[in-house]
């Protein structure tokens, strides 16, 4: 007689094992809950005392009591706006290309597959590598047109809001473009999933009634996929706001007390400011860092809630 996997051993022992495993799994699952609770609780306890309105206006200071997150907040807004303007069109465009223009020729199909593989790989590249890439390409432009302090090409003067220079230097635009590289794969993958969820019957109906391929995309597929694309984009932006490593390479830890005035202006962002405070030896600054984290997490939670709201409100089941 062969002893299979379900050879009845002592019934009691098997049932006991079964019960113990459930309990073990529940403990495992509740540990992640516990981790989140401790994390949020400890940060709230440390940081709430410092949180007031002036924290949003004040500049970083040597005195913990006076330190605020003002410039970092404005820096985050500028950089994320630049990032969104660069990443969203590129990402959605790539997703449309990948999902709506499925090729028939074998060698073009291979190119398609290569692009898809390339995007999955880009999603796995550590963000600090993107920072180094941004530093070399955007900030220094390989050093071929002058250096950061002595730009080879300028347009306007640093007092104008439209000031532009090449190489970009450690400015808002370089930071935004670098962040765009980081979140681009996320935007592409999310948009692809949204487009894939649109049923083919809609496409076929449009094509059958005489639409060209682009008219079909513009008036049928895209409108149906917009809620999904927006949800994915908002989540990508919340990733961008929290990203510190590439910003650290681009901006460095600099003492910034002003709001950026133009796209070439030096900047700092909220995660970087938090890193700065958390790394200081004085424990008073850890409380300030915790307050900064509360603000950052509040922004991220708002973003996530918005994404969930859009998903619930606008995503109608399409058959």
């Amino acid at each position: 007689m062969n002893r299979g996997a379900y050879q009845p051993r002592s019934r009691m022992r098997r049932l006991l094992k079964d019960r113990l495993f459930v309990i073990l799994c529940m403990i495992g699952a509740s540990l992640s809950l516990l981790a989140l609770a401790i994390l949020l609780g400890s940060i709230l306890i440390q940081g709430l005392g410092h949180l007031d309105l002036s924290f949003f206006k004040d500049v970083p200071s040597a005195k913990p009591a006076k330190a605020g997150i003002g410039p970092a907040m404005w820096g985050s807004i500028w950089v994320c706006a630049a990032c969104a303007l660069a990443a969203l069109p590129l990402g959605v465009g790539t997703a449309i290309f990948l999902e709506e223009f499925k090729p028939k020729k074998p060698w073009v199909r291979r190119l398609h597959g290569f692009l898809q593989l390339n995007i999955t790989n880009l999603a796995g590249v550590p963000s600090i590598v993107y920072g180094i890439l941004g530093l070399t390409v955007f900030v220094q432009l390989f050093g071929i047109v002058g250096n950061t302090n002595d730009p080879g090409f300028t347009f306007g003067s640093p007092d104008n809001w439209y000031y532009f220079q090449l190489p970009l230097g450690r400015g808002v635009l370089a930071g935004g473009l670098t962040l765009a590289l980081v979140v681009l794969p996320i935007v592409i993958i999310a948009s692809q999933e949204a487009l894939r969820a649109v049923p083919d019957s809609l496409r076929e109906a449009a094509l059958a009634s005489g639409a060209t391929r682009w008219q079909m995309i513009r008036q049928m597929t895209l409108p149906a996929a917009v809620p999904g694309i927006m949800t994915g984009s908002i989540l990508a932006m919340s990733r961008a706001i929290g990203e510190a490593a590439p910003m650290l390479v681009i901006a460095g830890v600099v003492y910034i007390t002003f709001t950026p005035q133009h796209l070439m202006d030096e900047f700092t962002v909220m995660p970087l400011q938090i890193y700065n405070w958390a790394g200081l030896p004085q424990t008073e600054f850890h409380k300030v860092a915790a307050t900064g984290i509360i603000v950052l997490l509040a922004v991220l939670l708002t973003f996530n809630a918005l994404a969930v709201f859009i998903r619930q409100r606008f995503q109608q089941p399409l058959q």
Binding site: S32, A35, L36, L39, S42, I43, Q46, L235, S238, R239, I241, G242, E243, A244, A245, P271, I274, Y275, A278, H286, A289, A290, I293, L296, L297, L300, N304
Partner: peptide, 15 residues
């Protein structure tokens, strides 16, 4: 948990 920025985890580890 997945959406929390890593700098927050770093602060958590340190403090």
């Amino acid at each position: 948990l997945a959406g929390i920025p890593t700098v927050v985890y770093g602060f958590f580890a340190l403090t």
